[in-house]
Simulated scan of single mutants.
Amino acid sequence: MTSTTKSGLNDIAAAAESAKGQAPGRGLPPVHLWNPPHCGEIDIVIKADGRWVHEGAVIGREALVRLFSTVLRKDPDGIYLVTPVEKLRITVEDAPFVAVRVDREGEALKFLTNVGDEVVAGPDNPIRVETSPGGEPRPYVHVRRGLEALIARPVFYELVEMAEVRETPDGPMLGVGSGGAWFPIGAAEAEGA
């Protein structure tokens, strides 16, 4: 495992900041185009609740977390912080982001993540719901390039309030529409519909 000190985090932040302007829009760098030669690991864990932890301590600088979130990339073997010169694997307990808000804008559902990403659910950014071993729903929305946000419980309750029942091959399901697509979020009977 690569031992990364505070100055190492600053080096990664500086590389991410310098690369930030290489893409239009929100300034997301083109991490999908980078294949740096150096690859290792860094002791960063994104907790299931969205907190970023480095060497056991929560990263308290919101701007630093937001910056690091822009250089995340999901590869077949894990999630990495990627800059033009370095690729470091990190640990993600659940999803790298948390959807902390949803707004209905006409026919679209617009989500806001804990790191400031805004994403409209639709065919390119689907909503999916898994069931935890304990039977609890675990809802997600796709954010970008295979990276998802866990939909926070209060936000999921808002989706349930917006949901409509449709008949499906699996029986009546509650679901929400957005961006021309419909996403089942649970069995209608389970929600008391």
Results as ranks from 00 to 15, higher is better:
3 S>C: 13
7 S>G: 14
8 G>Y: 05
11 D>R: 15
13 A>F: 03
14 A>P: 02
17 E>H: 10
18 S>V: 07
18 S>A: 10
19 A>W: 02
22 Q>K: 15
23 A>Q: 08
23 A>P: 07
25 G>R: 06
26 R>F: 14
27 G>K: 15
28 L>C: 09
29 P>E: 03
32 H>K: 08
33 L>T: 13
36 P>E: 06
41 E>G: 06
42 I>F: 09
43 D>E: 15
45 V>R: 03
45 V>G: 01
46 I>L: 11
49 D>K: 01
49 D>V: 07
56 G>T: 05
57 A>P: 06
59 I>E: 00
61 R>I: 06
64 L>S: 10
67 L>I: 07
76 P>K: 13
77 D>A: 10
82 V>L: 02
85 V>C: 05
88 L>D: 03
89 R>S: 08
89 R>F: 04
93 E>D: 10
96 P>H: 00
97 F>Y: 13
97 F>R: 01
99 A>W: 00
101 R>L: 12
101 R>P: 00
103 D>E: 14
104 R>V: 09
106 G>Y: 12
107 E>Q: 09
107 E>A: 12
113 T>K: 06
122 G>S: 07
125 N>Y: 06
127 I>W: 01
127 I>N: 01
128 R>W: 05
129 V>Q: 02
135 G>M: 01
136 E>C: 06
136 E>Q: 10
137 P>Y: 01
137 P>Q: 05
142 H>K: 14
143 V>P: 05
143 V>D: 07
146 G>D: 03
146 G>H: 11
147 L>Q: 05
149 A>R: 04
150 L>P: 00
150 L>C: 00
152 A>H: 07
157 Y>Q: 14
157 Y>H: 15
157 Y>T: 09
163 A>L: 09
169 P>H: 12
170 D>C: 01
171 G>N: 04
174 L>E: 02
174 L>G: 00
178 S>M: 13
179 G>Y: 02
184 P>V: 02
186 G>F: 05
193 A>R: 07
